[in-house]
């Protein structure tokens, strides 16, 4: 792709975003919608920048990030381990596969009240919800990726003296890395979304809580700020993850 083509595509891509903001501005300025319903974009972005320097806002963002990463990390460990184990052992596969079949289509958010009952209203229940939501795509991607690994890779390792169990983690998992990382990226974005929702449903802190609190006080401007923050957070995490993925997969053939 040539540079000019790329540049023009970026310009075309910015167009609708600019249009949305312009339309938003026009509606707000025209007075059709009162500012309590739709604050002008200028006010929202000014507030966003102001909040980005505020201690209280950053503390809440930190709480959200902590829950997100705690849940995501647990989901990665559990999902990858179970996925690899299901590939490595018929017995584990026989248990994990039907369980996943039953639990994967269940909207995990429905479990949230049960998690609250068992783990309380604090961090634990939110982290548990993140784990429940993020673990399935990671597990499935790992399982599918590892079970598709060419036997000959394992055989090459086994002939060199590698034990079957060691081969499972040093060869099969490594060879399935592209698929595993795809699952992890989906899991990461899901974590980002779920932690926010959990905080909206019941919480006393975090970005989701800020949105709900602002809504309760009819501070519309402050409702937009957490939403935009979570979008930026998601995009940043996605970009960071992609960079990591590219580095980790530098030896693997290109795939989209």
């Amino acid at each position: 792709m040539t540079f000019t083509r790329r540049a023009s595509e970026i310009a075309i891509g910015i167009l609708p975003i600019a249009l949305v903001i312009a339309l938003w501005h026009a509606i707000a300025a025209s007075g059709i919608a009162p500012a309590v319903l739709l604050p002008p974009p200028g006010a929202v972005f000014a507030r966003l920048i102001e909040q980005a320097g505020s201690r209280q806002f950053l503390d809440n963002a930190a709480v959200t990030l902590y829950r997100l990463f705690a849940g995501f990390s647990i989901a990665v460990v559990v999902g990858v381990t179970l996925g690899v184990a299901a590939t490595g052992s018929k017995a584990v596969e026989g248990i994990v596969k039907p369980l996943v079949r039953v639990l994967a289509p269940l909207p995990k958010v429905a479990l949230y009240p049960a998690m609250i009952l068992m783990l309380g209203f604090d961090d634990a229940s939110k982290i548990a919800l993140v784990v429940a939501d993020a673990v399935f795509p990671i597990l499935l991607a790992t399982y599918q990726g590892t079970s598709a690994v060419d036997n000959k890779l394992v055989w090459s390792a086994r002939a060199a003296g590698c034990t079957p169990r060691r081969a499972l983690f040093t060869v099969v998992l490594m060879a399935a890395l592209p698929s595993v990382l795809t699952g992890c990226r989906i899991g990461l974005i899901i974590s980002c979304i779920v932690v926010f929702l959990a905080e909206m449903i019941t919480s006393t802190d975090g970005l989701g809580y800020l949105l709900v609190r602002a809504g309760r006080n009819f501070e519309t401007v402050d409702m937009f700020v957490p939403l935009i923050s979570i979008s930026i957070l998601g995009l940043t995490l996605n970009a960071a993850f992609n960079a990591l993925r590219k580095w980790l997969l530098r030896g693997f053939a290109e795939e989209s």
């Binding site: 060419d150 000959k152 890779l153 055989w155 060199a160 490594m174 060879a175 997969l249 030896g251």
Partner: peptide
């Protein structure tokens, strides 16, 4: 089972891509 006394070479190379 496999052992280091018998080394395989496959048509598909089976190199470790990482």
């Amino acid at each position: 089972g496999p052992g280091p006394d018998r080394g395989p070479v496959f048509q598909e190379f089976a190199l470790f891509p990482w």
